[in-house]
Nucleic acid binder design. Structure first.
Lengths: 312, 312
DNA sequence: CTCTCGCCTGCACATTTGTGCAGGCGTTAG
DNA sequence: CTAACGCCTGCACAAATGTGCAGGCGAGAG
């Protein structure tokens, strides 16, 4: 009943199981309260105390913690996907979680930037009771090609703003222009300044991640790229993009000539946003997502379990 | 990831597994710290969190808590006995634990009262490194019959005092006298006053419990009783004694005529001692021990697992 | 649409827990 | 036996946690 180990378990029992206060334990054992505190610390260190969380998908939570650690993220939010879900279902689930997360973190009068992305587009309408806030929603990238007009990024920010009782700013230019002069002209135009200004004062940014070029067929904006752009990107081994900025597996930004024709927030600017959230899933986005995370452009990640596992 | 249950497990995980502070959790979830505190309370209540103490004889500790609750005791200390131990071994183990416990609770200059009892007698010499203190050890009952002189209670207090670097007071009378006049005379004698005075200022008292009369053969003092005493006690259904005071299963004190011839601390006085410890074990002492505990004479119990279980 | 009711939250304060520092006791080497 | 070393403890302060109270928000009735 005396020896070391035994004392530890006794103290641990009284504290954790009986719920006694350290002071009470100290009195029954005729020891100083500090001593009890130290004994408990030892007991925890020596693993005498094991705490289990019932009914929880602990693995998922552990995975979140690991990812957070691995990429130095502020926060990671994972959803569990079951094998019987279609890709469609998984995307919807992720969009729903993204919307919920936005609701969770948004504060009154926040400036919220939204980039292009199939999942971000699906966020709209996922919430039963969106918080009413006076947030300002702004696009982070230019619009799609004329062929995809109905998926215009303006639509997303407009709908989100309406749901959250806020306002939205529109973007009146396609994501990729034909020349850097055209792009510079637009970005320096008076009507563009509101947007440019908003980009500098973002509180929250939600971005997607683009996968490899080969899969570009279903993209809503990549048809704006020229043959030459694509050639160049392939040559430089692009593995994906974020906000229309391409990079390789090492996180190196590619094709300056293309970047100079792109109307979108710069990644360096995105990096300064207090809460910058990447939302993405699927096997083929793993390499680009991994690169993006390594670049420390975003500080928050929302994805699903299978994608998360592939990130290590 | 959102709903109630899920939030609870998440918070519990971050707090208990990851060891984050409530403040940190509140920040990642964008909630108030108080809310996290409340969520954790709920999680504990709903049993989402299960804490196990590794390698511990948890049952023993649980038993202690139950006994404490059941009899309103200040403290309970149990030792585990294995079936391969002889009765002798078990007694020694209990004596050892009693000695250890005394060492644990004793403070400098304490007045420590010791009653008769086979286990109390064995306490002597059980400690490797007794604390040095200036405690005063006093007997709580008179000595044994002449036939058992070598087990005199004075020997115990003397040895204990020596081990703890303190002093001892002796008692110069047998536990039971032949008449109340003789007893009163002794107890009012000048030389007895030091003892009587000590009884009023006890900080700690260790007492044993006597079993039923039928088993009295191995007692060191019950041969002082007369035939008439024994007849009377049996008639009144005595189940045991403490400090030479007999009681029945309801805790009723018996045989006033005998009590008036007894030289021992009164149970009512024992009740006032801040830390009063009963040390006893074995099946045949269960009824008397149970009665004693119900009387709330002592506030601390040291026994073994099997005896403890039988007390319910 | 308006009002009421009740739950939930944040705030501020009380309690509980954690920790650096200084002093005491025991142990060991000489 | 003495002295030096180191572990352990209590103290006092810092950090973290628990909780009553008041205000806000949404659900539901009228």
């Amino acid at each position: 009943m005396a020896s070391e180990q035994n004392l530890l378990t006794r103290v641990a029992y009284q504290y954790y199981i009986l719920g006694q206060t350290q002071q009470e334990i100290a009195e029954t054992l005729n020891l100083g309260r500090s001593t009890i505190s130290r004994l408990l610390t030892r007991a925890r260190q020596e693993g005498i105390i094991s705490i289990k969380i019932a009914g929880a998908d602990t693995e998922l939570l552990a995975l979140e913690a690991q990812l957070k650690e691995r990429f130095g993220l502020r926060n990671v939010d994972l959803i569990s996907t079951t094998t019987d879900m279609s890709e469609q279902d998984k995307e919807t689930a992720l969009a729903h979680e993204s919307a919920r997360y936005l609701k969770q973190i948004i504060r009154p009068n926040d400036h919220v930037g939204i980039a292009w992305g199939s999942i971000l587009a699906k966020m709209v309408g996922q919430l039963d009771h969106p918080k009413t806030t006076n947030a300002i929603f702004v696009p982070l990238v230019g619009g799609p090609s004329a062929a995809n007009a109905e998926y215009h990024v303006n639509t997303i920010v407009y709908d989100l703003a309406r749901q959250f009782g806020g306002t939205s700013v529109y973007i009146n230019a396609a994501a990729v222009q034909e020349s850097r002069y055209l792009r510079d002209g637009i970005m320096h135009a008076r009507y563009f300044q509101e947007l440019a200004n908003a980009w500098q004062h973002l509180d929250i940014a939600f971005v997607g991640v683009g996968g490899p070029l080969a899969k570009a067929t279903n993209s809503h904006w990549r048809d704006l790229l020229t043959e030459a752009d694509i050639m160049l990107l392939k040559e430089q081994k692009a593995i994906g993009d974020c906000c229309c900025t391409f990079f390789d597996q090492h996180g190196k930004l590619l094709a300056p000539s293309l970047r100079q024709r792109t109307i979108a927030i710069a990644l360096s600017q995105l990096q300064k946003v207090p809460i910058s959230v990447a939302v993405a899933r699927s096997q083929n986005k793993v390499p680009s997502l991994k690169a993006l995370l390594s670049m420390a452009i975003v500080n928050t990640l929302i994805t699903d379990e299978e994608t998360a596992r592939a990130l290590f």
